[in-house]
Design a protein around this nucleic acid. Structure first.
Lengths: 175, 175
DNA sequence: ACCTGAACACCGTTCAAGT
DNA sequence: ACCTGAACACCGTTCAAGT
């Protein structure tokens, strides 16, 4: 049952999706793993670099989910892939705050390829839009306070919010 | 020298612009004001509602600065006003994180009129873009770590970052 | 009405020491 | 190599009690 960087990140992902960012503390994480808080620092430099790990995982998760529909233009499949990413982030409570930090710190490597493959100029206004939209949505949910929420974990669409997201995204991508 | 909600907010703005969000704690704030931490809670409900106060101040500050240039179209003057707001936020280290929280919590009232006057549908993709862009820029600066930084406090333009910001903004506003 | 003092229940991180 | 134990320097918030 030895600790690894992976097992630490796994536990962190679970805490994040089940309880949120407020409960994702190094001490809580250690408790969950039945070790002393100080043990974590052997496997991870500090909390910030744990965030980078988590962000990269969510990016990879979106890449895995994303098999582009055939007979689709470049624009449409990019919009779809980014929307898939949005769906992934929405499953991890305040993930957008984490990704925002991690991206500011480590650059596009923490993002899914749908975003990191864009040319640098496009990235500079698409990424803020994507992360900003999700962050606001997630913080709104946080304040709405769902103590035992009807978490729509099902793959269903998001309704108006998702449609609006796609509209803005399309405007930014069609310069 | 009695404490007021305003004097608390004033001190908080000073700490934010001089030292950043990491130093903006209730205890530090109390120390600066020569009172016990508990004294603050008579004037402000909690830290979150202090953030709402700060966000509203920055919105108002942008409104004050903004005298629209004559002979300009609606689009151009909106872009200018929002760019002015961006300039205000950039003077308060990690302000975008605060405004993001405050906006998620309290809605468009904490924003400058250039943003709150937009119709609801436009707001839904412009505001995430604006706050996301500034948040990323500010966090990048934070990690770049300027212990005794050459803070470009002068009113000079921001170069590429500002130009890119305006481009994206224009795309979003011209549906 | 406005503030102090003391407490409660926490944080992230470091580091000698153990195995 | 990997982890414990103890410490350091903090947090936000509450609440009885003082003036």
């Amino acid at each position: 049952m030895a600790l690894t960087t992976e097992s630490v990140a796994d536990a962190a992902m679970r805490i994040l999706s089940d309880f949120g960012l407020g409960d994702l503390t190094m001490r809580r994480l250690a408790r969950e793993l039945n070790v002393q808080p100080s043990a974590l620092y052997w496997h991870v430099a500090d909390k910030q670099s744990l965030f980078v790990l988590l962000a990269a995982r969510m990016g990879a998760e979106a890449d895995d989910l994303d098999r582009p529909a055939p007979g689709q233009g470049r624009l449409a499949s990019t919009v779809d892939a980014i929307t898939t990413y949005r769906g992934v982030l929405l499953r991890y409570r305040e993930s957008a705050d984490i990704v925002l930090l991690a991206y500011s710190h480590s650059g596009p490597t923490v993002l899914p390829s749908a975003l990191s493959d864009l040319d640098a100029d496009t990235r500079d206004f698409v990424i803020p839009y994507v992360l900003g939209s999700i962050a606001i949505l997630q913080n709104r949910r946080l304040f709405a306070g769902e103590p035992l929420a009807p978490r729509t974990t099902g793959g269903g669409s998001d309704g108006h919010a998702e449609a609006s997201f796609r509209t803005g995204l399309t405007r930014l991508l069609t310069g």
